[in-house]
């Protein structure tokens, strides 16, 4: 197993190298010049030229890429062109809100979606099944920002139950204050995810429930609940885990929008801002981080297979 993990980690590095090169080239080709953004509206072409030279942006592609990789190997992601703050510092500031938001969403989604999916599968064809399925289709059909606005209008403006925007950090605020600020964003972000997981859970449960050993267990007169959870869900877990892993990328995309609407200072917002301003070092750093997270989570998902299916050995 250790060998497997090591092999996977090497593959991870390969993936990240692909991403790094891809992103760097993409940025190199992208029109848009941080020097122009820095100079402001009233600057002239000459001003911009001088700023660009100062930033080293007029060097050839390979020199810049080489320099960046070299620094990266030393753990240095560079310095934001605009704020002059280290990229690692900027990312560090933003990790907590995004982590809180995605974990909260993930947790809520799994806690809501898996039981829903199991319920729907257990009562396939019933009204409760249809209701779950209807929801799982509806969940896909509204862009997350529209849904977020509806939540704000109802719960923050009309009912005044929850705050409109912002994030409270965990360490300095009360738990409730922290949680309050996460409820609406998590619901907004989680809807698609709940729909997705509920759907997959139902499908794979149906698959498993059709298998002979479940029928045997039922025939033996085992109570429905232990059969469902103990036997069926455990065996249906692998596709569910896979989808959760793949869904992380979706979650990050969704987080960009959610963080914008709810003014949460997370990584997603940092990324969009950096792209709009062409803050190259930040974009590169963040993308690399995203791909690392994605790859690691999928590795963890793969390893978790062992938990659910002892037959799997690496």
């Amino acid at each position: 197993m250790l060998a497997y993990v090591i092999r996977r980690l090497f593959a991870t590095i390969a993936v990240m190298a692909v991403v790094a090169f891809f992103v760097f080239s993409l940025l190199y080709l992208t029109p848009g010049d941080p020097a122009a953004v820095i100079a402001g509206d009233a600057a002239t072409s000459d001003d911009i030229k001088r700023i660009r030279a100062n930033l080293g942006l007029d060097e050839p592609f390979l020199v810049r890429f080489g320099g960046w990789v070299w620094a990266l190997l030393q753990g240095d992601l560079g310095v934001s062109i605009f704020t002059n703050l280290p990229v690692t510092h900027l990312i560090g500031q933003r990790v907590e809100p995004t982590l809180a938001l995605t974990l909260c969403t993930l947790l809520v989604s799994v806690l809501v979606a898996v039981p829903l999916g199991v319920l729907a599968a257990a009562r396939a064809g019933s009204w409760s099944d249809r209701a779950v399925m209807a929801f799982s289709v509806l969940g896909f059909s509204l862009p997350v920002f529209v849904f977020a606005y509806i939540l704000i209008t109802v719960f923050s403006i009309e009912l005044r139950w929850l705050p409109v925007q912002g994030y409270r950090n965990f360490a300095e605020n009360s738990f409730w204050d922290w949680l309050r600020h996460l409820i609406l964003p998590s619901i907004a972000l989680g809807t698609v995810y709940i729909a997705l997981i509920a759907r997959i859970t139902r499908a794979s449960m149906l698959d498993v429930l059709a298998q002979d050993y479940i029928r045997t267990a039922q025939a033996k007169g085992l109570a429905p609940a232990p059969v469902l959870v103990g036997h069926a869900l455990k065996n249906a877990a692998i596709p569910i885990m896979t989808i959760i892993g793949i869904g992380i990328a979706l979650l990050i995309s969704g987080a960009i929008v959610t963080e914008t609407v709810f003014a949460i200072p997370g990584i997603g917002r940092l990324t969009v801002d950096a792209i709009l301003r062409r803050d190259y070092p930040v974009i590169q750093g963040v993308t690399l981080l995203f791909s690392a997270i994605y790859v690691v989570i999928n590795l963890l998902v793969d390893l978790s297979y062992m938990l659910f299916d002892p037959r799997i050995r690496f």
Binding site: Y149, S156, V164, Q165, G166, T260, V261, A263
Partner: peptide, 18 residues
């Protein structure tokens, strides 16, 4: 200074006293 990129959210924040 609290920067709120979305103007609808900014309006709501002011409305709610945030």
């Amino acid at each position: 200074w609290i920067y709120i990129p979305d103007s609808a959210t900014a309006a709501a924040a002011l409305n709610a006293g945030e």
